[in-house]
């Protein structure tokens, strides 16, 4: 809408001129986005330069250790050299496997739970009880049951992120507008197909919100399970760095997790923008 209006009023004679007019706008936005982090980094560097303490590394030191972690030679007994890519891939793989299970099961079961009153009455109590247990409380159980093994981590991630997904999807399915269900029925949809033709579609915005919640939780749980239950990965690096008193590596690992979390969330956001393009202009600003 806004685009239409501006293009109408500006009426740029050539595409080149349009680019000239528009470039500063996105540049300004980009600059604003990075302004706060840059100020923070400068302040951090200044503090460590003016009052150096052994306990707080400077940004420079963090970057140096990080580079060694990424590009350094692989050495026995030195986990912090050259292992970054391997650890990132390990964590990523666990998150993807666990989240894929949680998303598939959570969306399917959520729709059924929200739509069919009988299923809801049967399972609602159990789900609410299981949800009340913090996922971290399952760590000893998972390690006992699966051992120090990938399955333990994937179980924790899948199990933990299943609940926000299933609860949100069920809630949305229950709120499917009744007129839309009736409209589909009178147009000839069979009652047993309503869940796919109407309920799933109407719940789609909530499904994407719940997936983003679940993915956030999957990253929390991968770190927890790597600290406690499995070898390798960014959570393992975090805990080892703590044991070696390496705050520089702790910071590098934290920033790594942040970047991965942000990137995976962005990916889901793009996917949802594509799937919900019918909503554009309908919600928000």
């Amino acid at each position: 809408m806004t685009e239409q209006i501006t293009s109408f009023t500006d009426r740029p004679s050539t595409g080149e001129r349009e680019a000239l007019i528009r470039a500063p706008v996105w540049l300004r936005k980009l600059a604003l986005r990075f302004l706060v982090p840059v100020i923070f980094l400068i302040a951090w560097q200044a503090v460590t330069a003016l009052a150096p303490t052994p306990s707080l590394p400077s940004p420079r030191e963090v970057v140096d250790s990080w580079l060694v972690w990424i590009f350094g030679p692989r050495l026995q007994l030195q986990w912090y050299s050259g292992t970054w890519i391997e650890y990132v891939l390990l964590s990523l793989r666990r998150v993807l496997a666990g989240f894929a299970i949680a998303a598939t099961a959570g969306v399917t079961f959520g729709l059924v739970l929200g739509w069919y009153a009988l299923i809801h009455d049967l399972f609602d109590g159990v789900i609410n009880f299981l949800r009340a247990i913090p996922t971290t409380a399952w760590v000893p159980f998972a390690v006992f049951f699966f051992g120090i093994h990938e399955t333990a981590a994937i179980f924790l991630i899948a199990f933990g992120s299943f609940f926000p997904i299933v609860i949100n999807v069920a809630g949305a399915a229950r709120q499917t507008p009744r007129t839309l269900v009736r409209a589909a029925l009178m147009l000839g949809t069979k009652p047993r197909n309503i869940i796919w033709r109407v309920v799933l579609r109407a719940a789609l915005p909530a499904i994407f919100t719940s997936l983003r919640l679940g993915l956030g939780l999957a990253w929390v749980l991968v770190i927890v399970s790597e600290m406690l239950a499995v070898q390798g990965g960014l959570g393992y690096a975090l805990w080892s760095a703590y044991q070696f008193n390496r705050l520089d590596l702790i910071v590098a690992a934290i920033v790594s997790v942040g970047c991965l979390g942000l990137a995976s969330d962005k990916f889901l956001e793009l996917l949802s923008m594509h799937a919900l393009k019918w909503q554009r202009g309908l919600t928000g600003r």
Partner: peptide
């Protein structure tokens, strides 16, 4: 039960917003 022989037009239109 409802069926396509009896078409219904609703006050609130009830078009599927995703189509």
């Amino acid at each position: 039960s409802p069926g396509p022989d009896r078409a219904v037009v609703f006050q609130e239109f009830a078009l599927f917003p995703w189509l």
